[in-house]
Amino acid sequence: MDNHMLLELKDLEVVYQTDFENVYALNKVTLSLNAGETLGLVGETGAGKTTTALSILKLLPKNIGKITGGSIMFDGVDIVKATEGEMRKIRGNKISMIFQDPMTSLNPVIPVGEQIAESLELHNTQGRTAAEIEQRVDQMLELVGISPNRKTDFPHQFSGGMKQRVVIAIALACDPALLIADEPTTALDVTIQAQVLAMMGELKEKLNTSLILITHDLGIVAQICDKVAVMYAGEIIESGTMEDVFSRIENHPYTVGLFGSIPNLEVSTLRLAPINGLMPDPTDLPKGCKFHPRCPKCMDICKTESPRVYETGTHQIMCHLFTQEGNVIQ
């Protein structure tokens, strides 16, 4: 299997500029993903997960969201510098995205088959005929477990789980190299969640697609991801392979907090241990480590100096706890 580097984000910075304030959504985000790999992007609401995804597609809200620094390399193309026309050739073709809410991500007035066919028509580089496109639509619907004779139905005639399958079919129609799934199962109930995840895992194997799975559910990450990146206040505070992070030998205090917020079936506890406090205001981020106001292990240095990256093998943690004695890069 071809394992070349597919996507690389380097020191990516995104700011949302409104009339009143600047929101620092991404602060030097660095990520990389090889072909065929699955990356779990974990974090609280507002950590910058969706912003990261939208930056990769260059679909940040117009006139408001701006990439102010860093680079995004995708398959040899610098996305930050790419023109709108070049981006349109990539969107839906080489990079597809599955959005959070299947209830609202399909157009209510267009039959689902037509919505799947649209990306095929837009990226018809192979010169498919109309009949071949229809055939491909049927094939995609079958792939996600929907009977092709329902392609003339409208989105409101499908259940939530089926709508998400349609969304997945749209995203996979052009055999993308990279699929970004933004909380694909949040809006679905648990049984459907499992089905959709299993299906995405299968399809990914079959098509050798790289996947960025955005979620706040560590359970899902453990199920299907190869790599994990934990985001907090627009930064990646910990990243590594699934084993690195889930072996729990060394973790960022925030990641420890995330693990503490999951009920454990083996140990009986009366209460879960939530992370106290809220995500900092992105218009006015704290000095030093952005997690320090909520950190149970906060030291004096954390309040003044930004932590550097502590690295052991593939595992990277951005925390003073480790950099003081550990092996420091940068």
């Binding site: 679909l59 990539i90 157009n107 209510p108 007035v109």
Partner: peptide, 24 residues
């Protein structure tokens, strides 16, 4: 959201308006 979906498919702004926005 469905307009964002259309843009994520690689549709041009003109197509987004004509095909996805007008009827709604």
């Amino acid at each position: 959201d469905y307009i964002r979906t259309a843009r994520a498919k690689g549709a041009t702004e003109g197509r987004v308006v004509r095909k996805h926005a007008i009827q709604n």
